[in-house]
Design a protein around this nucleic acid. Structure first.
Lengths: 146, 146
DNA sequence: TTGACAATTGAAAATGAATATCATAAACTA
DNA sequence: TAGTTTATGATATTCATTTTCAATTGTCAA
């Protein structure tokens, strides 16, 4: 079963239909798996392939994809939702955001074990997900010629 | 030098004036140092003491206070800015957000040393600040009668 | 104390991202 | 293929926040 078939199954399971729009949106996200596109950016890319699409459809679809676990919603504090393709390592990587140039760097690995352990124990809090961002200066912006 | 005097100094240093509005907003934030009030909530509390104040003034003042390091802006992914009084331990505590009841629990202590070390070394990224949130279920919501 | 001048304010309009509405247009299924 | 949903696009709406601008208020120098 190929990717599209799997996708179709995932939709049908919940009673959703496979439409051209949804397929194109998935394509755009898949082709940009290294990026962290905002809804508006996705809209612009989708329109190149399917100019008739409406903005509302893109927003609706991204919401749907998030519910279905197809994408993961990110928040970089820039006032817009961003998305990346869902993969199991989503919960095991963090984002480093450069305060100067805005670059977003991925930090693989979780390394939160001791912190999460401390929380579960001392606070009796069951952790489902976490959101960790680091703000600072990337190597490019740290060099004196930038 | 008392608190208000220090505050006045801080403003004057940057050429800002001490107005009644700013003083009242500071009072409200100080009196709620354990909370994480949103702009709108602060506006409502301020109006009890100073009904003539405008909403824009509250937004402007919160922005200013953030620049001056008087408050710290929080983002709990609920679509509004929240603020807490700035203290050095801001960077050394995290927020646990209950997915069921919305409670926000403070987790004192940082415990990110090993993670930050790994980032600075492997990514050549100079960390200035971090933002760590945990989502899950608080002890109250975990009990079977809730 | 008083100007004078810059900073500040309040009210209202504007913005921008996201959501809701609703009539029309596809998908899936019997 | 018809019939029943679900989905879509255009548009209006919401909500938090920001901007605008004329009027007001601090502050500092004289």
């Amino acid at each position: 079963m190929n990717e599209i078939e799997k996708f179709k199954e995932k939709l049908k399971d919940k009673g959703y239909k496979l439409t051209t729009q949804r397929r194109v949106i998935l394509d755009v996200i898949t082709e940009n798996r290294d990026k962290h596109l905002s809804s508006e950016e996705i809209y612009d890319l989708v329109r190149l392939k399917y100019p008739e699409i409406g903005l509302a459809t893109v927003y609706r679809t991204l919401q749907l994809f998030e519910e279905l676990g197809i994408v993961y919603k990110l928040n970089f504090d820039d006032g817009r939702n961003r998305y990346e393709l869902y993969h199991n390592e989503n919960h095991q990587h963090h984002h480093l955001i450069c305060l100067k140039c805005g670059a977003v760097i991925e930090m693989e690995g979780d390394l939160l074990e001791n912190l999460e352990e401390a929380i579960e124990e001392t606070k009796d809090f069951e952790i489902i997900d976490h959101n960790v961002k680091f703000f600072g200066y990337c190597s490019k912006c740290r060099s004196r010629y930038n």
